[in-house]
Nucleic acid binder design. Sequence first.
DNA 1: ACCCTCACCTGCACGC
DNA 2: TGCGTGCAGGTGAGGG
Length: 277
Amino acid sequence: MPELPEVELVTRFLNKLIGGRRIESAILLRQRLAPHSSPRQFAKAFGGSSVNFVHRRGKHILFDLDNGRTLITHLRMSGRFMLLTDEAEMPKFTHAVFQLDNEHRLVFQDQRHFGFMRVCRTRELNELPELMKLAPEPFSDEFSVDYLHGSLKRVNRAIKTFLLDQSRVCGLGNIYAAEALFLAGIHPSKRSHTMSRPRSRMLHQNIRQILQEAIDAGSTLNIDPSDSDSAYYGGEYERYWRVYDREGQPCSRCDTLVRRLKHGSRSTFFCPRCQRR
DNA sequence: ACCCTCACCTGCACGC
DNA sequence: TGCGTGCAGGTGAGGG
């Protein structure tokens, strides 16, 4: 599921629903979810603290706590947070539970077990390796045309692979990388260092556009905390996909059939007519 | 630096 | 109905 737009929406959802709330206790049910702490340390790190606010860096979700610590989480492929009432049954694949002070529990559930959590001191956040190597936020000034173009020129890789590299552009995943390339009219196999400046500029604009569009499409979702399965991921945006998962269907711009190819083991989708090398 | 494969897990859609 | 296969939106490690 989650690429930047989904993570952004989850972050807003969490901020609204648990910002300011006190965590009475925390239970780590699957040790490997948080390999840096034992269940005991995990419980100790949260018990009695309150959530100042929830924010995001790349695809990471960060819970800023009032005890000087921050919880860093990554949903990877299938992780999700759910807010359940105390009476509600725990879903299958529940790996961590945070008991809140309002008769609700925040539950982390992850079918594929890829997600992770880590607690660190907030003032050491900037030294965390997984955050340090991330590229600038795509909506920040630092993520400029100059930055993107320079970064593209420095390496020689299929541009689709480049876009998935979180240390060069952060927030894109398999779907939005394919969609951004479609908007920019760039063939996914084009070598990154052959990009001209005008095309880099176009791509830069389209990366922001596709991410913003997806956030906007999802932000209208009605997230009802009492509906535990309200799937804040929504799936709403699927309707707007232009090429992703549309192999064999006509291109929305020129009617040529959308094709699929692989980079590494990841599928990518593109219009052979609209997207040039 | 780059590319590929594998690994982490489960579930689902597909063809036979 | 059941079984095998391949696939899934993320990422890191290891080897050539």
